[in-house]
Nucleic acid binder design. Structure first.
Length: 680
RNA sequence: GGCGGGAUAGCUCAGCUGGUUAGAGCGCAUGAUUCAUAAUCAUGAGGUCCCGGGUUCAAGUCCCGGUCCCGCUACCA
């Protein structure tokens, strides 16, 4: 049962303002959303396209601290870059605002208060680390100390970067505040929780029964969560960067960023339409669509709807088309490793080629599984598809008309069956494109749009007007009229996908933009209409250009890795006596196995020369397979107090070096020595 | 470890509720053509449908087991 909606609210995941936007964001969220919205507008449907930056949360405060600037400085910088680059790519937001806006502060506070007054939250008091000197509670990332697992210094409260173990702040040995350096104390703190468990029943009905049409990845993930049972989720944090919890007795507490961010969709609508925003969020005849990446599924399908429901007056999303991820040259896109193609840099490196990126990202969109972006593919799709099929057809039609009819649209002189058949084919394509777009299959829709140009090329090849020009100019007139009508249809077919190119094509043909319903018409241009000057719609991209991009990728990656990495500070001096207490030995690995039910641990049986095997558990499973190390000699600390890991007593610690990229390499003697040899 | 998604031609992907010789685009080969940015058009060669079992008259498609990739989540500490 398909419901008829009066209008559509489209939101895109709010990019986090601690870095620029890259092609992964575009392919997964912004380009498909923009295509969808442009299509709806062409169909004269009522649609609102909402975007904005997500500007709160701990990572931004950390980045600010690292750079010695304020969080506001950070978000101002990236918000500006992101907003500008979206505009330049033609992502046609009706508004692109931010979660630090005044409207948003008010809206988020109001939302919290409404839910609070309805009894929609539960309160819990727990103990957390507090920095007395700085008078603030400490986020996990703000606490450092010694890792209880690998004993390395400088582990964070949520994770030890050395061994990769995830931690709780209370696990750290000798915890220190990253703000003041003082030792934090445990202090009671109160927080509010959204009891998702109380929403489980209706969520189950709403998603599992009423939205079976959602994409399989989305539906499956939701079902998994619902089947596991939902837990209450904290909506506040002790932090000074964010929206203050708007009730009494909540000083020093802000809304947790996940609670505040999605409300940004609503706030931004309100900022744009202060008087009429509610119909876009509260009217049952409005269709709400969230475009997101797959990492955001649970959030937009379960958590945010629970918030909206708890508030009581909002509609729920009708669909959440989540895409998978885009890889780059075979590797995961990573901001920290600087393995990415940044939008703002692309726009500088490829001026006027917004549509090429839009095309490639759509043609290769990660709709059903992770996909790979390569510069070679980028070049091939530009040269073999945009230039050779689309651009070339347009050029042929325009140049031939220029040549035979001085650039004026010739009159048809009697239509043959092949002529009318062309438009029947185009109408069939229009239907396919519509069906694909309505179902968020942008890749297929684009392919069908390209088929319109293919029809044109085939028509010209079959009709051969350049031959008939010697004998039958009437027929040539008809053929070129038809060809030009096909070219005019291309301006409609590609408008959602390649808005810059359709603009140029319209100019070249001296044609106004057409609406979607004219798609398939054989009368878009009247006889005698004067065309503009033909230019090349797309130009070839040479090998050297894409090779330079690959090189740039490799270079910046290497440079950033080196620049970002510096060796840890040397620890405080120790006496020779202290050194002598350490007993480092060499042993031969007799047996190495994975520890069951643990992803990171390997269990070693080591010949240490004593006659009995020594058991050591080490967190290096992510870096070595058991076979690689069996038979090898390793160095280990022999007199470290034993520790139980996953129920196995580990008698010592295997020494490894950690490289700048985080890779662990086991320390091994340069030649074979007798097991039990001392390392001095 | 649990859960979700994926694995199909050289590459990127379609294959709905199981049914004849497994499809598309690009790339490749051959031919045609020259109006066009050596672009176009036609034809063709490419596939143990990840592996191993099973259900069935019939399995890429359903069931069980396994491998690898991605995401969520947990444990460990």
């Amino acid at each position: 049962m398909e419901k008829i909606f009066k209008r559509t609210t489209v939101t895109t995941a709010l990019p986090y303002a601690n870095g620029p936007v890259h092609i992964g964001h575009l392919a997964g969220v912004y380009v498909p959303a923009d295509i969808y919205v442009r299509y709806l507008r062409l169909k004269k449907r009522d649609v609102l396209f909402i975007g904005g930056s997500d500007e709160h949360g701990v990572p931004i405060t950390i980045k600010a601290k690292k750079e010695g600037v304020t969080p506001q400085d950070i978000v101002d910088r990236y918000h500006t870059i992101i907003k500008k680059s979206f505009e330049d790519l033609g992502v046609s937001f009706d508004i692109y605002s931010r979660t630090t806006s005044k409207t948003h502060y008010e809206q988020a506070s109001e939302m919290f208060k409404t839910i609070y007054n309805k009894g929609g939250f539960i309160e819990k008091t727990s103990e957390q680390y507090y920095d007395e000197e700085a008078q603030t509670f400490l986020a996990d990332r703000y606490i450092t100390g010694t890792c209880p697992h690998c004993n390395s210094e400088g582990a964070y409260g949520d994770q030890c970067e050395h061994c990769g173990t995830s931690l709780n702040p209370t696990d750290l040995i000798n915890p220190k505040s990253a703000i003041s350096g003082s030792a934090p104390v445990m202090k009671e703190t109160k927080h509010w929780f959204l009891p998702l468990d109380k929403h489980e029943e209706w969520l189950r009905q709403w998603i599992l029964e009423e939205h079976k049409e959602w994409k399989t990845n989305v539906y499956g993930q939701c079902k998994s969560w619902l089947d596991m049972g939902l837990q209450p989720r904290a909506v506040s944090r002790d932090l000074d960067w964010g929206i203050p919890v708007p009730i009494e007795g909540a000083e020093g507490k802000v809304l947790y960023v996940w609670f505040d961010a999605p409300i940004g969709y609503i706030s931004n609508t309100k900022e744009l339409l202060p008087d009429s925003w509610e119909k876009w969020w509260k009217d049952e005849d409005t269709r709400l669509i969230h475009f997101i990446g797959k990492d955001n599924i649970v959030f937009h399908c379960i958590v945010f709807p629970a918030m909206l429901k708890a508030e009581g007056s909002f509609i729920l999303p009708d669909n959440v088309p989540a895409n998978e991820f885009l890889n780059l040259e075979g590797d995961k896109i990573s901001t920290s490793r600087n393995w990415a193609v940044w939008l703002h840099e692309y726009l500088i490196d490829f001026p006027g080629k917004q549509d090429v990126l839009r095309y490639v990202l759509t043609a290769n969109a990660p709709e059903t599984k992770d996909n790979d972006f390569t510069w070679k593919d980028f070049q091939a799709r530009n040269n073999n598809e945009l230039v050779a099929i689309f651009g070339n057809f347009v050029n042929r039609a325009l140049v031939l008309t220029q040549k035979y009819f001085d650039g004026k649209v010739p009159e048809t002189k009697g239509l043959a069956e092949v002529d009318t058949d062309v438009f029947a084919q185009i109408v069939a394509l229009k239907d396919k494109i519509e069906e694909n777009l309505e179902n968020f299959r942008f890749r297929d829709a684009l392919k069908e749009a390209m088929n319109v140009a293919r029809i044109g090329n085939k028509y010209l090849a079959d009709m051969e007007p350049w031959k008939l020009a010697k004998s039958d100019m009437d027929r040539v007139a008809t053929i070129l009229n038809i060809s030009l009508q096909i070219a005019a249809n291309l301006t409609i077919a590609f408008e959602p996908f390649l808005p810059f190119s359709t603009d140029r094509l319209c100019k070249m043909m001296n044609l106004d933009k057409q609406e979607w319903e004219s798609f398939g018409s054989s009368l878009l241009l009247t006889a005698g209409h004067q065309l503009g000057t033909p230019e090349l719609l797309f130009e070839k991209i040479e090998d050297a250009v894409v090779e330079a991009q690959v090189q740039k990728l490799l270079d910046t990656k290497k440079a950033n890795q080196l620049a970002a990495w510096k060796p840890n500070d040397i620890k405080p001096e120790i006496t020779f006596d202290a050194f002598e207490k350490l007993d480092i030995r060499v042993g031969t690995v007799k047996e190495c196995t994975k520890v069951p039910k643990a992803d990171k641990l390997l269990c070693f049986k080591i010949d240490d020369g004593s006659g009995t095997d020594r058991t050591i558990v080490s967190g290096i499973a992510a870096h070595y397979s058991p076979e690689e190390l069996t038979g090898k000699q390793v160095c280990f600390i022999a007199n470290l107090a034993p520790r139980k890991l996953k129920g196995i007593e580990s008698q010592g610690m295997i020494l490894s070096a950690e490289s700048s990229d985080g890779a662990l390499k086991v320390i091994t003697p340069s030649g074979i020595v007798t097991p039990g040899s001392e390392v001095k």
